[in-house]
Simulated assay, not measured.
Amino acid sequence: MGSHRRPAQPGLDRSTRVTVLSVAAVTAATAFGAAPAGAAPRDKPSDTRAQVDRLYEQAEQATESYNKADERADKLRAQVERTKDSVARGQERINTMRGALGSLAGAQYREGGIDPSLALMLSSDPDGYLEKAAALDRIGSRQAGELKDLQQAQRELSQQRAEATRKLAELEKSRTAVARHKRTVEHKLAKARRLLNSMPSKEREEYDRSSRSGEGGRAELPDLAGAGAASSSRAAAALAAARTAVGRPYVWGANGPSGFDCSGLTQWSYAQAGVGLPRTSQAQRYAGRQVPLSQAQPGDLVAYRDDASHIGMYVGNGQVVHAPYPGASVRYDPVGMMPVSSVTRV
């Protein structure tokens, strides 16, 4: 009997047919815009820029945490030094009191070694002895008072030592937090820099020229007045200082004068006007009276995002001066470069 199986097509074995079908599938997928299986997807330039923006934002948030922990560590270091000085002074005082009490105890021993009535009977100078005995009684009362003072001083010294130990432990925790936040910032910034370096030079230059959040991140703004006048002489002085910083590099964790992060710039600028601001942008947003953006005046602080993780200084004409991000210098940008969360008049 003859076979009913269909004869194989000439020149096409099984492996060849599989290959032909695979090529056809890839061709169809390409025709419909799908990437071949296993192909590495390529980010569009806008996607890469968005990733860089997110990394810079996360780095800025970590920088805020770093600045906060570092500020806390500075305060604790100062407190520890003051407590250590207080402990040293207390110990010196106790040593002096112990010395005085030792002298009194020696005098009592020397004068009170025999029964007082027998000493009076044997004394060739009873009146002189009575005078000495009265003096010793007074010394005894004084010694009791100084002993009480010594005990109180010892209790205070013990409390101060316990406080110093507690603050040292807090300082160590704060130092650990500073180091942790620093590692986070460095990791985010390094990743952002790698992404930027992966972009074609033309797109990288365009990113460096553009405001960080691009057109998509701009806020809806009210009508803003022209340059106007600063709200006070100190605001004018702070703005003048900030203008001198234009062109200096962004350096995270720095507050001048050679480099700045965002809150470091505003803190340094107001310090030149004799005004002390907190170190972080989150604290700076509450360092004065908040006003509507429509009433912003030169020298006002403009905080961005809901968490106030970025801050700049309003210069008028819808512009701020700020330290944008690593790789960029202090510069002017539109006030609406990112969503504005508050405007603070110092």
Rank of each mutant, 00 (worst) to 15 (best):
P10Y: 12
L12P: 01
T16R: 15
V18C: 01
V18A: 11
T19D: 14
T19F: 12
S22T: 13
V23Y: 08
V26G: 02
A29C: 09
F32I: 12
F32M: 12
A35W: 00
P36L: 12
A37G: 11
R42F: 03
D43P: 06
S46E: 15
S46C: 02
R54E: 14
L55E: 08
A59L: 05
E60H: 05
Q61G: 14
T63I: 07
S65R: 15
Y66Q: 01
N67G: 08
E71K: 13
K75F: 08
K75A: 15
L76D: 09
A78L: 13
A78C: 03
A78D: 06
Q79C: 10
D85A: 14
S86K: 13
V87I: 13
R89L: 09
R89M: 07
M97E: 15
M97Y: 05
R98E: 10
L104D: 14
A107K: 13
P116K: 02
S117L: 15
L120K: 11
D127Y: 01
L130N: 01
L130H: 06
A133I: 01
L136F: 09
D137G: 14
R138W: 01
R138P: 04
R138Y: 00
I139Q: 15
G140E: 06
S141V: 11
R142D: 15
K148F: 04
L150D: 05
Q151H: 11
A153L: 08
Q154T: 11
R155D: 13
S158W: 02
Q159A: 15
Q159T: 13
Q160T: 09
Q160Y: 12
R161C: 00
A162Y: 08
E163T: 14
A164V: 04
A164I: 03
T165S: 15
L168K: 12
L168G: 10
L171W: 05
R175G: 14
R175K: 15
A177K: 14
A179S: 03
H181I: 05
H181L: 04
L189W: 01
A192Y: 00
R193W: 08
L195F: 03
N197K: 13
K202C: 00
K202G: 13
E206C: 02
Y207K: 07
Y207F: 15
S210A: 15
S213T: 09
E215M: 07
G217V: 02
A219G: 13
L221M: 03
D223H: 05
D223A: 13
A225Y: 00
S231F: 02
A240F: 02
T244C: 09
V246T: 11
V246Q: 10
G247T: 11
R248G: 08
P249I: 06
G253W: 01
G256P: 07
G256K: 03
C262I: 01
Q267R: 15
Y270R: 00
Y270Q: 01
Y270I: 00
A273F: 02
A273C: 09
L277D: 07
P278Q: 04
R279W: 11
Q284R: 08
R285W: 02
R289Y: 13
V291C: 10
S294Y: 03
Q295K: 14
A296N: 04
Q297L: 15
L301S: 11
L301C: 10
Y304L: 02
R305K: 10
Y314M: 02
V315F: 03
V315S: 12
N317S: 11
N317T: 05
V320P: 00
H322C: 12
H322K: 12
A323T: 01
P326H: 12
A328F: 03
S329F: 07
V330S: 06
V330Y: 10
R331P: 11
R331S: 10
R331K: 15
R331I: 07
V335D: 04
